[in-house]
């Protein structure tokens, strides 16, 4: 039996079969996702500590976030998760054109999210509702309102970094789909990208009520 015929090109030399390779990759991705949750877990902890210390200030400060834009962004991200899932589905059934459409939709929705975030940020910067030392706004009652904005900017900022990272990876998937790297038999990278994208979405689903819906 010819060695190269029995082993598909995408199978790395140290795995015995595609199933083993796929299982290994998926397990690795799940572990990585766990580390991401723990990374944000630290911020959730800081949030809890300071909200417990200053419940009133948190309530007063959260009213200065734009609930409408926040809600729109939540819908945008959830929709992008749907298009990402559809992109995986399309790859699984071998429809390249559909895959590309859904990947581009996901990228576009991610960009919309960032644009809305940009408007939110610039409005806050304009008002001086900035983290810590740069906080100059005077219209919020309660002790140390700058801490709310420190936490707001750190959490949403770190999340935005993850969105950008996700966009880079999705772009890479677009390129690889163009080059016909994937097939109905082999689509692990695009599946893992999907897992990551759902995680980024999920984190936002926690951030949104914590920051925009206090009280």
């Amino acid at each position: 039996m010819n060695h190269s015929q029995s082993r598909p090109a995408y199978l790395a030399h140290h795995f015995s079969d595609p199933a083993q390779q796929r299982d290994a990759s998926k397990l690795g991705m799940w572990i990585f996702i766990m580390t991401e949750i723990l990374l944000f877990g630290g911020l959730f902890l800081a949030y809890t500590v300071f909200r417990t210390l200053n419940p009133d200030m948190f309530y007063n400060a959260h009213k200065h976030l734009d609930l409408t834009l926040g809600t729109v962004n939540t819908i945008v991200l959830i929709t992008s998760s749907v298009t990402m899932a559809l992109a995986i589905r399309s790859t699984q059934v071998g429809k390249k054109k559909q895959t590309l459409i859904f990947l581009f939709s996901t990228l576009a929705l991610a960009a919309v999210f960032l644009v809305i975030k940009y408007f939110e940020y610039s409005h806050k910067i304009h008002l001086g509702q900035l983290p810590g030392r740069f906080y100059t706004y005077t219209g919020i009652e309660g002790t140390n309102p700058h801490i709310f904005f420190s936490i707001y900017f750190t959490m949403t900022g770190l999340h935005a970094v993850h969105i950008i990272g996700g966009m880079v990876v999705i772009t890479l998937m677009v390129v690889r789909t163009f080059k016909n790297h994937f097939s109905a038999e082999y689509y692990t990278p695009i599946e893992l990208t999907g897992l990551y994208w759902h995680l980024v979405d999920l984190i936002w689903i926690y951030l949104f009520p914590l920051l925009y819906l206090v009280g």
């Binding site: 580390t35 723990l38 877990g41 800081a46 030392r133 700058h146």
Partner: peptide, 23 residues
């Protein structure tokens, strides 16, 4: 399980030094 928590701690420390988030 532990390293990501160090990661976020260091991010917060760096932010404290650069922009003074006050945490």
């Amino acid at each position: 399980m532990a390293t990501p928590v160090l990661g976020i701690t260091l991010i917060l420390l760096a932010l404290e030094r650069i922009v003074g988030i006050g945490i």
